[in-house]
């Protein structure tokens, strides 16, 4: 009962947040809704028994990415200033009815096709009995340092590269 309640809340948060990211005209609002959506995804991870992933999702997105995005918005003139020097000063309209109808129809068609393809997978899927409240941390840690050690090392090099690259790129050049 508790699990399905959490699932419904998280799903609503995820979908509502994602929709509002699309619909909101203000960039900072879109960032806040993105945060809501990512929190919903963290809740969904929790319902899937992936507690470590849920916590990492919270840390990386709430603590890192969203604040970074807000920072970038501030450093590039805030959300109000959407004009460019060619005079195009509006976000291309999302409000037209035709856009919604065409988008909705194509989404329907695509989802039907995808569901048709995935039907066998979904039918064969069973809820693997997860032991209640076991920790995935130990398992993931062991797997990261045994089977997936190469990917782990490469990702750490990638992060270091991203860190240095970001610092070098965004530094204003003198002279």
């Amino acid at each position: 009962m508790f699990g399905s309640t959490l699932f419904i809340i998280s799903a609503l948060l995820t979908l509502g947040g994602a929709f509002m990211v699309v619909a909101s005209k203000n960039l900072v609002h879109a960032c806040v809704f993105l945060l809501a959506s990512l929190f919903g995804v963290a809740g969904l991870y929790a319902t899937l028994g992936a507690d470590f992933l849920a916590a990492i999702q919270l840390v990386v997105y709430a603590g890192g990415v969203v604040i970074l995005m807000l920072f970038a918005i501030m450093l590039t003139g805030g959300s109000q200033d959407l004009s460019n020097k060619y005079g195009l000063n509006k976000i291309p309209g999302m409000g037209s009815v035709r856009t919604y109808i065409a988008g909705g129809l194509s989404a329907l068609v695509i989802s039907l096709v995808v569901l048709k393809i995935l039907a066998n997978v979904i039918k064969s899927a069973q809820v693997g009995e997860l032991p209640e409240f076991t920790t995935t941390v130990e398992k993931i840690g062991t797997m990261l340092l045994t089977d997936h050690i190469l990917a782990f090392e490469i990702s750490s090099i990638l992060l270091l590269g991203a860190l240095i690259g970001a610092a070098v790129i965004s530094r204003p050049r003198k002279g």
Binding site: V28, D51, F52, A54, A62, I67, V137
Partner: peptide, 22 residues
């Protein structure tokens, strides 16, 4: 007593930063 409690705390505590910024 979450078994990822420490990471969870670090995550939710940074919402405060977003609140201050906004």
């Amino acid at each position: 007593n979450l078994n990822v409690g420490i990471i969870y705390l670090l995550g939710v505590a940074s919402i405060v930063g977003i609140g201050i910024f906004l």
